[in-house]
Simulated scan of single mutants.
Amino acid sequence: MEKFLGMFKTKAPITIIGVIVIGVIGSAIYDAIVKPGFGVVSKFLFSVFTLGSQRMKDSAYSNAALDPSSLPSLMLLMFLIIGMVVFVSFNTASSEMRRRRLDRGRQGGDQSECRNGPTEKKPITKVKLQVAIYTSRFSAVIFLIFAYVMISTTNQSILVWRIYNANLAIIAPYTQSDQLLGIKSAFAKMRTEKEFLELYQVMKEISVKNNIELRQDVVW
């Protein structure tokens, strides 16, 4: 026990210093490379999936003016419902295709009796099953793209809303009441990314004049 305590006393400072150094280096790498990289990749994928639509980007800023904090729960419910429908349809078609493949290796006695029975339904052809499977796969891809676009848009709306409220609180002590009301009114009427950038510039001028720093963690 005394030997263990002695080793702990001698190596503990080195271990603590090593953990701190690794943490500082890791944090620096994350802030310098990983975090900006996520933003670039996210912006690129969003542009690809929306074909560079400025209207889709503007919708994020328009929603930000309406307090988007309640949107994630509604989106989650919608994605669960749509995702379950896509999964069930794909799973049903895949199960039927696997069952047919297994039936090919069996003797046709029982199948012949079933097909000739009075309650026999017309079997689904192989082509129809393949079409159903490919359609389900295509629907799953479309669903994932749609989910990514909607999540990215909502995330941007919430981020814009948070940044605006934080910056509004920052400049409030240095701004006259009528000018502050004008900024709030402009944000409430905001519809496009351009209008947000113009409003941010107004807030930026106030911050520069009073030597204060605004938050600017906007992804797009």
Rank of each mutant, 00 (worst) to 15 (best):
E2N: 15
E2Q: 14
L5W: 14
L5F: 10
K9H: 04
K11I: 10
A12K: 12
A12E: 11
P13Y: 08
I17M: 10
V21G: 05
V21A: 15
V21T: 14
V24P: 14
I25D: 12
G26F: 00
I29E: 09
D31S: 10
F38L: 13
F44K: 05
F44H: 14
L45G: 09
F46R: 07
S47R: 11
G52I: 06
Q54V: 09
R55M: 09
R55I: 01
M56Q: 09
K57G: 04
S59G: 01
A60Q: 09
S62M: 13
A65F: 08
P68Q: 06
S70W: 10
L71P: 01
S73W: 00
L77E: 08
M78E: 14
F79S: 03
I81V: 12
M84A: 10
V86F: 09
F90V: 00
E96G: 02
M97R: 12
L102E: 10
R106W: 07
R115T: 02
G117P: 01
K121S: 03
P123L: 04
I124F: 00
I124H: 09
T125S: 13
T125M: 04
K126G: 02
K126V: 03
V127R: 11
A132I: 03
A132R: 10
A140P: 06
Y148C: 09
V149K: 05
S152M: 11
T154I: 13
R162W: 00
N165S: 06
L168W: 11
Q176W: 08
S177D: 15
S177A: 15
D178A: 13
A186L: 12
K189R: 14
M190F: 03
M190P: 01
R191F: 07
K194R: 11
F196D: 01
E198T: 06
E213S: 07
V219G: 00
